[in-house]
Simulated scan of single mutants.
Amino acid sequence: MPYLSRIRINPLRARSRLLLTSPRAMHAAVQGSLPGLPQEERTLWRLDADNAHRPQLLVVTASRPDWTHLVEQAGWPGADGEHYAVRDYSPLLRQIEAGRTFAFRLTANPVQNTRRPDKLTPRQAQHLEAGQSRGFRLGHRTAKAQLNWFLTRAPRWGMEVPLAPHLEETSASDEERPRDIRIVARSRRTFGKADLTGKEMQVVLNAVTFEGRMRVTDPVLLGERLLAGIGPAKAYGCGLLTLAPVPEQAGGGE
């Protein structure tokens, strides 16, 4: 049974400052909420820091987690209020029907694959010389390219982004008119990670948060993406897609 959790983070605590700035540390804290071994269950997580004073961590897990340790280290242990919530994700999955519209949010790492980058990093050049790579994964850096990445791949995820509402009548084709999607946050995350040989390597990713409206085209594909995530860097806070009912469909919830 899948679960969706929401955890309040206290940004003033020393441990919180590490978690908020280090995707590796946050990944370890998320995995620590589950009783099994890390390799036994993959998780999806996203940090929503729209309000810097009250950031929230959202997590999707296959089994029920316990966030007590995270509240003790990075929350408000002993204070009033709900420090975290864990809810069965199945009711939302059952609401996904072809043609239904939802509001969405996704933090992703938009990338493209190429066999020969215009400018090789020292590590890429080393791999190419050794014949160790059949291609390279490069991040999209401009907002236009990042939006195009989302829109061109949305059908593979079982959804489409409708036209932006309240548009004046124009002679432009649907392909040229704005879609109901926007980028609300962009950040470049850089951190160290040990490779298979134990050598420290630098990881760089462009995390982009998209918001807007989407229409379900394939409930099965969309359900898979809600549970398995979208794009690379899932261990580092990318890939978690969440849905919420639009006002005219307020009968359900996230």
Rank of each mutant, 00 (worst) to 15 (best):
L37S: 10
R177T: 08
E169Y: 13
R123H: 11
V30F: 04
L138A: 06
D118L: 14
S173Y: 07
T217N: 06
S22E: 10
P165L: 11
E224H: 13
Y3T: 08
R177F: 05
G99F: 03
E168V: 09
R105L: 01
A207S: 10
H27S: 06
E129F: 04
Y89G: 08
V30R: 07
G198S: 10
V220H: 09
P2L: 05
E211H: 03
D174H: 10
N109W: 02
P155K: 02
D80T: 14
S5R: 08
Q132K: 12
E169M: 15
R46Y: 04
A49M: 04
G229P: 13
V59P: 07
A228P: 00
D88H: 14
L205V: 02
E82I: 15
D80K: 14
E200S: 13
E175H: 11
R24K: 11
E200A: 14
D80E: 15
I9P: 07
A103L: 08
E40Y: 00
M159V: 10
R153A: 11
V59K: 02
G131T: 04
S171W: 13
A145V: 01
R137E: 14
W149H: 13
A143M: 03
P77C: 11
T217Y: 01
R156C: 03
C238Y: 08
D66I: 07
N51R: 09
E176W: 06
L47A: 09
S16E: 04
E200P: 12
D180I: 03
V111W: 01
G75K: 10
P122A: 08
A29P: 06
E254V: 09
L227W: 00
D118N: 12
R213I: 01
G229Q: 11
Q56F: 04
P91H: 11
E176P: 09
Q202V: 14
K119P: 00
I230D: 04
N109M: 03
P247F: 03
L243S: 04
